[in-house]
């Protein structure tokens, strides 16, 4: 790992930052309430498209955790998402009709907003179907975690994605606005995650869950990555490299202990597989705006027409974070 690697990574990071900065003009503010941020806010960043059904629960979930302000990019919604968000007192909204794919799947917009508003603050970057779970999340607000990370001088926190799914076909249990999606998608795969180490970025690459089990049995390498680092005390020189899977500078990816100990970590419950999924998959496929030419969605469509039940005999029913910690999907580390 020589100087040339370091230079290459540095160049890569600067490229990402410049790219994000150049794309700032694609964002038109709809409601900018960032002037009224409290001191030391915890911020949430997200890119959404036609999420009016999910957003009410999403916002209430994260308000309860203690997010002080939401910074959301609306990517050309036509279902009232933008208007709904603009009405919320703790949400700032930008809108853009530019291509999701050309914006590195929204990450250019996120990187710009993170650098502009997240500098020196704790920032959670999630999608509208990702719900952050961390140790003691039932009894301690998010600020307890960020204060503790501050005292430990830890700038980033891992939360692996956990695909949640219902028992039975997805369309059998319709999801309604404001509902907790995990009343329907109660199940997850507890122990089929494969991990490899990426020596260049020093992150762990995790794949598995129901998608790998059902849709990628013949080409496991293409199965979606589940590792994420959504919570970061941001600095304007940081950049997400690929979705929120990895970061530069790469020390931010050292969210794991390689000597045998456990660092604290959380989970992002992924509420993707609801009755809304079929329509979403068809739309995304038509737009072709997703990762790897929507190979993921194509795989789903093929598989889903045959088999829409992700549930199996060994699916675990979600209870709480302690269950996930016992199963070894997340850890309290030395936070007691």
């Amino acid at each position: 790992m020589g100087l040339s690697t370091l230079l290459r990574l540095r160049t890569r990071r600067q490229y990402l930052l410049v790219r994000a900065y150049r794309r700032r003009r694609q964002l038109t503010p709809v409601a900018d309430r960032t002037a009224s941020l409290p001191a030391h806010p915890i911020l949430l960043f997200s890119t959404v498209r036609n999420e009016s059904v999910r957003l009410p629960y999403f916002l209430s979930y994260y308000r309860r955790l203690g997010i002080d302000h939401f910074l959301i990019v609306d990517n050309g919604s036509d279902d009232g998402t933008r208007e709904y968000l603009a009405r919320q007192p703790d949400v700032s909204v930008w809108t853009t009709a530019a291509g999701y794919k050309q914006s590195r799947f929204g990450m250019d917009w996120m990187t710009y907003l993170l650098g502009r508003y997240g500098h020196g603050r704790w920032c959670l970057t999630v999608d509208a179907d990702e719900f952050f779970i961390y140790p003691f999340c039932e009894t301690r607000p998010l600020r307890a975690l960020t204060d503790w990370l501050d005292s430990a001088e830890t700038p980033s926190f891992a939360a692996m994605m956990l695909d949640m799914y219902p028992k039975g076909a997805m369309h059998e249990q319709p999801f309604s606005e404001g509902q907790n999606p995990f009343e329907i998608a109660q199940y997850f795969d507890s122990g089929n995650y494969v991990i490899s180490h990426n020596p260049l970025y020093r992150n762990l690459w995790i794949q598995g869950g129901p998608r790998a089990r059902l849709f990628f049995t013949d080409r496991p390498r293409r199965a979606p990555a589940m590792n994420k680092t959504p919570l970061v005390k941001w600095h304007r020189s940081y950049a997400y490299v690929s979705s929120t899977h990895m970061l530069l500078p790469r020390r931010l990816n050292l969210v794991y202990d390689d000597q045998g100990g456990e660092k604290p970590s959380g989970v992002l419950l992924h509420a993707k597989f609801l009755d809304t999924f079929g329509a979403k998959a068809a739309e995304e496929l038509a737009r072709g705006e997703h990762y790897a030419e929507s190979a993921e969605y194509r795989a789903y469509r093929e598989a889903i027409s045959r088999e829409r039940d992700l549930w199996c005999n060994w699916s675990e029913k979600y209870v709480n974070w302690r269950q996930l910690e016992i199963l070894g999907l997340m850890s309290k580390g030395n936070w007691a």
Binding site: Y193, H197, I206, Q259, E262, G328, S331
Partner: peptide, 17 residues
């Protein structure tokens, strides 16, 4: 837990190399 972890567990925040 922080120093030795759970033996045999490989996960996002414990990956003994």
């Amino acid at each position: 837990r922080r120093v030795n972890g759970r033996p045999g567990l490989y996960m996002q925040s414990r990956f003994p190399i």
